[in-house]
């Protein structure tokens, strides 16, 4: 009991320290407007990619339509905050987005999650495209032009806090009764069923939770960038999120953080290269995959608990 408290306190300390560090760097001027934008985009990508990692890495379901749920979050929040431009409106927008994305994921997930592997990937990609095309044709979403002048209700600290909260939700979920059942589905569905796991139910739980969290990423995107249109949420965006997950290591939340940072920074450096940027980016992607196909960290996770038990074990040996 006490031990658990200690580990949780250390995690909290790390989170606060990170916040203070960014705050200080911002004060001193090391982080300028440009760097801040990069950081915010990295944060949003972390939220999107960790939620996709929950679906791909932990429940083992290959979804290629994450941008669709991001879009639902972005549009919900944009519409709500445009009507109620306040912090309360932002929170309401977040909630509406999560509910909408969750319901859509539920409706879509119940039939499609029966499919496996690449078929599910294609079906979810199709769903995301359908969502995008509908947004492209509705009046309330202002069609292809999209929504603009969305109130800026998110700044880097909002993003930071939400990154911490969503990561906490995902990690705590994974290490609980439900999360373990979800992982058993990834490992072996037939064996899981044989010990009483309703595999469909747990796939859907992971899928809906992933979608709801992705909608938070979308809401932050809308309220930070302040303009959105359907092309922001196409297949390319789904693929970008997937790349972060695979690059970091499928099933490693730590890896997702590392990959989101690396790609964000790579993107920032390559800004100066113009068109060459995407060429170099794609080359880097191919090379990393060819030489490190399991992703940068594989399934490795950073763990405060292990850090301590390791030290202890060493201490005992001495």
């Amino acid at each position: 009991m006490k031990k658990n408290l200690k580990y949780n306190a250390i995690w909290l300390a790390i989170a606060i320290l990170g916040y203070v560090l960014i705050y200080a760097l911002e004060m001193v001027g090391v982080i300028d407007q440009f760097a801040e934008t990069t950081l915010v985009l990295i944060g949003i990508n972390i939220i999107l990619a960790t939620s996709l990692n929950l679906v791909i890495g932990f429940s083992g379901q290959f979804s290629l339509g994450h941008a669709g749920f991001m879009a639902l979050g972005a549009y919900s929040s944009a519409l709500v905050t445009s009507a109620i431009p306040s912090v309360g409106g932002f929170l309401l927008g977040l909630l509406v987005g999560m509910i909408v994305a969750g319901i859509v994921a539920l409706v879509v997930g119940i039939p499609t999650l029966r499919l496996n592997g690449d078929y599910l990937a294609i079906a979810t990609m199709g769903v995301a495209e359908i969502i995008r095309i509908i947004l492209n044709n509705l009046k309330i979403t202002n069609g292809p032009a999209g929504l603009y002048n969305i109130p800026m209700l998110a700044n880097w600290s909002t993003v930071y806090v939400l990154v911490v909260i969503t990561t906490l939700i995902i990690v705590n979920f994974v290490h609980s009764r439900n999360g373990r059942a979800v992982m058993s589905v990834r490992e072996d569905e037939i064996a899981a069923e044989s010990i009483g796991i309703n595999t469909t139910k747990y796939k859907i739980i992971a899928f809906v939770l992933g979608a709801a969290i992705a909608s938070i990423g979308g809401a932050l995107h809308a309220n930070y960038i302040q303009t959105i249109n359907p092309t922001d949420f196409g297949i390319m965006e789904s693929i970008n999120i997937l790349i972060i997950v695979v690059l970091g290591g499928i099933g490693s939340i730590t890896g997702t953080f590392v990959a989101a940072f690396l790609l964000g920074i790579l993107d920032m450096i390559l800004q100066n290269f113009g068109t060459l940027r995407m060429v170099l980016y794609s080359l880097a992607l191919i090379l990393i995959m060819v030489f490190k196909p399991s992703g940068l960290l594989g399934t490795w996770e950073f763990s405060v608990r292990r850090l301590f038990t390791h030290k202890k074990a060493k201490g005992d040996a001495e």
């Binding site: 992982m183 072996d188 010990i195 399934t299």
Partner: peptide
């Protein structure tokens, strides 16, 4: 058919999902 990439403890815990 074990859950190969999970620990021994997790393998057994998962079987207790419904009782938990």
């Amino acid at each position: 058919r074990l859950f190969k990439d999970l620990t021994v403890e997790e393998n057994v815990l998962i079987a207790m999902t419904d009782k938990n």
